[in-house]
Design a protein around this nucleic acid. Structure first.
Lengths: 187, 187
DNA sequence: CACGTGATGTCACACCGTGTCATTAGAATC
DNA sequence: GATTCTAATGACACGGTGTGACATCACGTG
């Protein structure tokens, strides 16, 4: 038996998601979230750095998955082949629950503050990818460009995956976006 | 003769830049900035939406320049040719004062909050570019990909322009990054 | 000179996020 | 089973952010 009601962090995440959806991010105070979770605002800030972060738990897991995908790619894979593998890894993690992704994205799209947080999370992912590519010998500007390109594909593909009725897996949409980019950017 | 000391907005910008550089963003209060500019905190918030925005005045001008560059591109230019023109337009605007850009970037790089704001400004630029491309007939996923690609080049190229000793113009660095990307991403 | 107008100041306020210390519920030990 | 230890939580105070409401000031205009 746990000491207190179990899963405080999860309760806070759920409460926040519910309130952000019901009345909007700005109309929700940290006190509201904590109260709904049966806790206090002070405890909220022990689990999450700020009011935004509660929607972005799990981004560390994404970074880990990204690193793994790069590490497990064949030694002789080209940078863009590694990118393709990374896209698969990302899709496997965030491509499971499209309804949840949609609800979360509605909240984020309605709130500039949350968009900022999402963008910096993606930027961090790009840095992790860039460094992982460097670590396997990709030269300097190429690694950065490949990483930025990968994230560009994620942005565009994820948006498409969320905002269309078509039932394809996220991984498939990302692969298609990559293919499109290759032909688009061809000199 | 002006009614009060002229150029309140400019004084606030300078004061903020100076204080952010001297003691750091977090160690500076809005009251400090206003005092240095001979104003009050309340007046600061009449000119800038928040403490971060004071470093990002002029981003509307960038959006305008971007739109102009797209509009003035030849009718039959390919999406990536339009992107090239846009890169020139951006370079003309932010490529003038490398020392100022460096100082500003030092502050931003030291402050996650400011990085978030910079990222959302760039994302807005990408949206403006995407819509401008759509307006000239570029199809849907291509327009988004081209816009994201352009911004990826700006990120990587601007970083390179700031962090190297080589004396080339920003426009040249951006063109080189574009060329690199084309060969990198070629299937 | 009186008046209007826009920029600035003053004040009050809700909320954010943090430091500090007290309290609690269970685990561990004897 | 009582005592002690420990980690999660609560309570409180506080500085800072950002906003609404209203007063004030400096100047142009009639």
């Amino acid at each position: 038996m746990a000491r207190w009601e179990p899963n405080a962090s999860g309760r806070l995440r759920e409460a926040a998601m519910a309130l952000y959806t019901e009345r909007g991010y700005e109309q929700t105070t940290v006190g509201d979230i904590a109260e709904r979770a049966g806790l206090t605002a002070r405890t909220f800030f022990r689990y999450f750095a700020d009011k935004r972060e509660v929607l972005f738990a799990g981004s560390e897991a994404l970074e880990g998955a990204l690193r793994s995908a790069v590490d497990e790619a064949p030694e002789d894979a080209s940078p863009m082949q590694v990118v393709a593998a990374v896209l698969d890894g990302i899709a496997a993690l965030i491509g499971r629950d499209r309804d949840y992704s949609r609800q979360r994205q509605v909240v984020i799209d309605a709130t500039p503050e949350l968009q900022e947080r999402e963008l910096i999370k993606l930027a961090r992912l790009a840095l992790v990818l860039r460094d992982a590519l460097r670590a396997r010998g990709v030269s300097d500007p190429e690694a950065g460009l490949a990483a930025e390109t990968a994230l560009a594909i994620v942005r565009v593909g994820f948006d498409r995956w969320i905002n269309t009725d078509d039932e394809r897996e996220l991984a498939d949409v990302l692969r298609e976006s990559l293919a499109r980019l290759e032909t688009l950017v061809a000199p």
